[in-house]
């Protein structure tokens, strides 16, 4: 496909790339202009007098600031670590032992998770957390969300683990290395891109999560940003666009940074670069 690269094909590719980039970029323009406009509307317009006044007001809302820079980091970070570690262990274990109907089993668990993380599940989830003494704790939110994200994470991870050739491990096994050692020294380095994908996927999901925190958390000191967002609404239930846009901007920065960091350090791609 790259052997005969005519100029026409090259121009075609560039046009296609620009069109796709435009499609993804245009809806985001508002997020860049609105926060800096002290009289913002839904229109994308360069503010005549750019100012940081919206951000000043947002930072005056200590509840929302704490939600974003403390609670969200704990919730998303904690869930990310748990899911990434457990999904790696599990998908490795599943990949290296004989389990009939493995794919179907994982898929059924994904189905369960789609039910359990939906609105209909909120009463059982609350009562469960209540009986475990997890209501109004960040731990509770992290544990419940981990249970919800694990099946999909294992499913994504499975492809990475399956794509590692097992000859290294078999050689190590012959040399008498323990399974744990094999996992840590051989498997983990090889699936690292997969761990990163699952970690980012979990982090962004937990970062934006809304339903479970609302149901489980009570104290303002524990609320995440998705709930704090509503503190920038009026009594009538309509958003104050100036503050909403500034908070949205701040809310987006961490996930963007995480992605850029991971992409730069490890490369953000599915199932590694192992050529077979």
């Amino acid at each position: 496909m790259r052997v005969y690269e005519s100029p026409v094909a090259r121009i075609g590719l560039t046009v296609f790339a620009l069109a796709v980039a435009g499609f993804f970029a245009l809806p985001l323009l508002w997020l860049i202009t609105a926060p800096f406009n002290p009289r913002t509307t839904l229109a994308v317009e360069l503010p005549s007098e750019p100012s940081l006044s919206n951000f000043e007001t947002v930072f005056g809302n200590s509840f929302a600031v704490r939600a974003l820079f403390v609670n969200n980091l704990i919730i998303a970070g904690g869930t990310m670590v748990l899911v990434a570690v457990i999904a790696t262990l599990t998908s490795y274990g599943l990949s290296r032992t004989r389990i009939p109907g493995r794919d179907l089993l994982i898929y059924v668990l994904i189905l369960f998770s789609s039910v359990v993380s939906g609105t209909a599940a909120m009463v059982p989830i609350f009562l469960l957390a209540y009986n475990l003494g997890l209501v109004d704790t960040l731990t509770g939110v992290i544990l419940v969300m981990t249970g919800g994200y694990l099946p999909s994470a294992i499913f994504i991870m499975r492809d990475f683990v399956d794509s590692i050739p097992r000859s290294y491990e078999e050689a190590a096994l012959v040399c008498g290395a323990s399974p744990l050692r094999i996992f840590m020294d051989i498997a983990v380095p090889l699936v690292r891109p997969g761990v990163m994908v699952v970690a980012v996927w979990t982090f962004v999901n937990a970062w934006g999560a809304f339903l479970i925190p609302v149901v489980l958390l009570r104290s303002p000191e524990n609320m995440p940003a998705s709930v704090a967002f509503y503190s920038f609404y009026t009594e009538a239930g309509t958003p104050l666009l100036t503050l909403v846009s500034a908070y949205a901007f701040l809310y987006t920065i961490p996930v963007l940074l995480l992605y850029l960091l991971v992409n730069w350090k490890f490369g953000f791609r599915f199932f590694g670069g192992i050529k077979r």
Binding site: L127, V214, V215, V227, G237
Partner: peptide, 23 residues
């Protein structure tokens, strides 16, 4: 004072859940 920053609907659900378990 426990400040709640979410929406009215969310607050209503929290009340119902909490009162239901005696809290």
């Amino acid at each position: 004072l426990v400040e709640f920053g979410g929406s009215d609907e969310q607050l209503k659900e929290q009340y119902a859940l909490d009162l239901g378990v005696g809290g």
